[in-house]
């Protein structure tokens, strides 16, 4: 269980290889607010008494089939009742940029789910080509934009 104070940002990532992990830490580097980072490999679930203001989710996407399973478990098993009206942003990783235009990538799934839970969506959804992951400038630009509105 992890306790964070109000107005803090929490980055949650799910990574089978290292791409999502590397992206998450790159985002962390760009955020000038106090931020904590959590890996879903640790079976972390969002506790009801967890305190944060902004949530950034970093997740691989598997195209038109489904998103990374641990992220799904995290979303479904976490209790979101105490997190209504908090902010969230999404960085998805996949075969190419632009799954967000297909309505089928992880980003869209997460966005729909958390909007249903009455959280606020922050900024544009970032879709990163992670095969290979080499466009860090895109991540930098996006996370700086997010940082400016936190």
């Amino acid at each position: 269980m992890c306790f964070l104070k109000q107005n803090k940002t929490l980055i949650v990532f799910s990574s089978k290889g290292n791409s999502a992990k590397n992206s998450a830490f790159r985002i962390l580097d760009n955020l000038n607010k106090e931020t904590e980072i959590l890996c879903l490999n640790d079976n972390f679930t969002l506790a009801q008494n967890l305190e944060f203001k902004n949530l950034i989710l970093v997740c691989p996407t598997y195209g038109d089939e489904e998103m990374e399973r641990r992220m799904e478990d995290f979303l479904v098993k976490s209790d979101w009742n105490n997190h209504q009206k908090k902010n969230f942003a999404i960085c998805e990783l996949g075969l190419y940029r632009g799954y967000l235009e297909t309505e089928q990538g992880a980003g869209i799934i997460i966005k729909k789910y958390l909007l249903n839970k009455n959280l606020f969506f922050l900024g544009n959804l970032l879709s990163v080509d992670s095969i290979p992951l080499d466009d860090f400038s895109l991540i930098d630009k996006w996370s700086q934009e997010i940082s400016s509105i936190l």
């Binding site: 489904e66 799904e72 479904v76 799934i109 729909k112 789910y113 249903n116």
Partner: peptide, 10 residues
Amino acid sequence: ESIFGGNFRH
């Protein structure tokens, strides 16, 4: 089912 897929997925 609406977001994740199948009706009895969970």
